[in-house]
């Protein structure tokens, strides 16, 4: 069955939701979505396969299986999250599971740009503060409110500034994080580049 999923659209100025902590450094995209689930021609059915092998190995104790984390939407991770393969299936699977924003110590580069391109803001925060959120003990998961314009997260535990690339922040605020239309606004300049690049002159047209 196709997941009942609505992708984000247009301007994003606030994201509020329950946090879900996933502890570990260098969590690669093969772990987020193992390669066998890439055998598909669309992203529609990826939600259930997110962290498939890690979840199987942890027999119900993986954060994405815990009942307390149901309906969570803000993922808290550690260092170099999303390293490895460029597969956009990884953020697509997270998004379809319910993740709307990620806060981490650091992110791998291609994963980060994939997240931005599909409307998932990724924020950086110090190791100490991430640890504080991840190890926060209470009856309920921490509820976080992210203000995109201020790059700030508010909660009962703490209110702090978050790190984000200025370009990414502006894309969310303006609703232009889906870059295609912005890029196509410069069609004349693109055509000029196509005519001017030296190697396109001395390479015969390929086909």
């Amino acid at each position: 069955m196709k997941d009942n999923f609505q992708p984000p659209l247009g301007k994003i100025s606030k994201i509020a939701g329950k946090s879900i902590s996933l502890i570990g450094d260098d969590i690669d995209t093969d772990r987020i979505i193992p390669a066998r689930f890439l055998k598909c021609v669309n992203f529609d059915y990826l939600a259930k396969s997110v962290f498939a092998d890690d979840r199987k190995n942890l027999k119900g104790m993986h954060p994405f299986d815990l009942k307390s984390n149901e309906e969570s939407s803000i993922l808290i991770v550690n260092s170099n999250f999303g390293c490895g393969s460029s597969r956009e299936h990884a953020p697509q699977a997270l998004m379809r599971w319910g993740i709307k924003a990620i806060i981490g110590e650091s992110f791998a580069e291609i994963f980060y740009s994939n997240c931005i391109a599909i409307g998932i803001p990724c924020y950086t925060l110090s190791k100490e503060l991430i640890k504080k959120i991840q190890h926060h003990k209470s009856e309920h998961n921490l509820f976080l409110e992210i203000d995109i314009a201020k790059s700030e997260v508010k909660s009962d535990l703490l209110t702090v500034n978050l790190g984000i690339k200025e370009s990414a922040k502006n894309m969310f605020l303006s609703g232009k994080w889906d870059a295609t239309s912005t890029l196509l606004e410069n069609t004349n300049l693109i055509d000029k580049k196509m005519n001017d690049l030296p190697y396109l002159k001395f390479n015969n047209k390929y086909f």
Binding site: I110, S113, A117, K165, A179, T180, L183, I190
Partner: peptide, 20 residues
Amino acid sequence: FGIGTSQVRDVLASQTIAMN
């Protein structure tokens, strides 16, 4: 450099991508 599928779409559509 490697890109994700949304950027593959951007290259197909515009032969360009947005990148820092």
